[in-house]
Simulated scan of single mutants.
Amino acid sequence: MTAPIIFVTGTDTDVGKTFTSALLVSKWQCDYWKPAQTGLESDTGDTKTVHDFCSSGRHMPHLFPPRYALQKPLCPLEAMDFEPHHDIQLSDFQLPEERINTPLVIEGAGGIYVPITRGLHVTTDLIKHFITSTSRPVRIIVVARSGLGTLNHTLLTMEHLKNAGLLSHTLGCIVNGQKNPGNVAILERYGVSILAQVDHCSTKEDITLALGQIPELADLSL
């Protein structure tokens, strides 16, 4: 059986998708791919971040290069305005055909409704493109911040996934940031599956604790 593809999206930007992706890559011994990277004029990029996170750990993933690497820290659609020679199409994103027996974490750009193409395709459309182009199971993990505002953002994200017909492909949500049991309890009352609560990490000990919060891949219903 081929290994699963885990698509990591967020309820917003800067909610901890890359850090969470690095945790998943390390815990589940996955490879990593960021299909569309923006913001390279001010940042080294998420692939480098995952590399650096894993470099001192137990697993060094194969890092597939982004299909598109854009300079401005904007959504891919708007970033293309500054590099008009790029014209992103969903068909440009072809899943790697090698290493199909190794789980693959794919990190999206921003949240679930981030505009990607000039045809106004969004992250949801990219996920559907991947689902229809592979026999591998594709599953979605939503990263949400723990604090104020997360209820609205997370419930809207889950509602959108439901309306897009993707709820059956969604494993659940990882909540990132200072623990907030009240918010988690309310999300669960609305039927959101909370896979893990990951606190802020500043030391190796913190990261070890965070990794311990991530469930085993074999324990999830893929």
Score class of each variant (00 low, 15 high):
I140M: 03
D52W: 01
E188K: 15
A196G: 05
I116Y: 04
L74R: 07
Y32P: 15
R136K: 12
T150L: 02
I207T: 15
G182L: 11
E159I: 03
V50Q: 03
I100M: 14
G191M: 11
S21E: 10
Y190I: 07
N152F: 14
L95E: 03
I140Y: 00
E205M: 07
A109V: 06
L167V: 09
S135H: 06
K72I: 08
T2Q: 15
D125H: 11
L126G: 02
Q197R: 09
H153C: 06
L155D: 05
L187D: 04
I127D: 01
A69D: 12
P35K: 00
H153G: 06
T123Y: 09
E159H: 11
T117K: 07
S21Y: 03
T203E: 04
L222V: 08
P215C: 05
T150I: 09
A36P: 00
E216G: 09
T44P: 15
S55V: 04
I116G: 00
I6F: 04
E83G: 10
H51V: 03
N183Q: 11
E41A: 12
N176Q: 15
S21H: 06
F130H: 03
F82C: 14
H129M: 05
P4N: 05
E205W: 00
D199I: 04
H200A: 10
L70D: 13
C201E: 10
L120K: 14
P215A: 03
G172W: 01
G147L: 05
G45N: 07
V15A: 03
E159A: 15
L151R: 08
Y190F: 13
E41S: 14
G212Q: 09
G16R: 06
T208M: 02
T154E: 11
N152C: 10
Y113T: 06
M80W: 13
G191N: 12
